[in-house]
Design a protein around this nucleic acid. Structure first.
Lengths: 130, 130
DNA sequence: TTCGGTGCAAAATCTTTGCATCAAG
DNA sequence: CTTGATGCAAAGATTTTGCACCGAA
């Protein structure tokens, strides 16, 4: 695979940020360094980097997919109020694959899980309102 | 809310089927009874029924959302090979919300989880091939 | 020089919506 | 009748793709 400055920039941006940006957000941020980059290139590289395992794609959060530079196994929290996506510090739930496989004839080799609730910031905001 | 034959038909179809159809598939099946129904009406009713809690929307499986007439709490299995979505017979994983909340400052009140692997049918197919 | 990557724009896919008409209450 | 629901088609939103040109090797 050939090196590309744009791809490198996308990977660096994702590795540096703790938020979980959409393709559009990645695009806007990379534009600071490469004003001529196109959204198509961003999508192509996000797909490529996901296939290479260098980033993770998070689906099922809002309408657009999100991307994560943190490829260590971890779970995500989604705030029902502001939509924020946060990393959770918790061990892998390996045992739940076994629970799922218990009454199932197929083979189970993994899972995705997202947790929902109210983020610290929104709890704080709500307290002030009252 | 006014009664509508179309909405009733959609609800009945979803309650009767064990597969987890997309809006497009619902549309095609309802067309058997109501040839003039429009995709817009299907989407409007699927959204409405989801808000009313009469059906469930399953996101994060393939490109389009899927819908489920089974509103009892349960988990889904997704076949990596054929994309089939199957119901899993397992207890609710209430304890994982506590695990998630352990090192987290916000409030956690729920989760979604999908399990991945190879479905019985595909395992069977693969065995025959060899 | 070669060939993969890019920028651009068009297209594809999925979903929502405006509006005139229809039908439930 | 009145008002919400429908059918239709257009528009929105997100993502993919064809193609000519650029730039890494």
């Amino acid at each position: 695979m050939k090196y590309s400055r744009q791809r490198e920039s996308i990977l660096q941006y994702l590795s540096a940020t703790k938020c979980h940006p959409t393709a559009e957000t990645v695009y806007q941020n990379i534009q600071a360094e490469y004003p001529n980059i196109s959204l198509g290139t961003v999508y192509r590289n996000l797909t490529l980097l996901t296939e290479l395992g260098k980033i993770k794609k998070i689906t099922g959060v809002g309408c657009s997919d999100r991307f994560d530079g943190n490829i260590s196994p971890h779970y995500h929290f989604i705030c029902r109020e502001c939509g924020a996506v946060l990393d959770l510090e918790m061990d892998e739930l390996n045992h739940i694959d076994l629970l799922a496989a218990h009454n199932f004839d197929g083979r189970i080799d993994g899972h995705i899980a997202h947790f929902y609730g109210i983020c610290p910031e929104c709890i704080n905001k709500n307290t002030k309102k009252q």
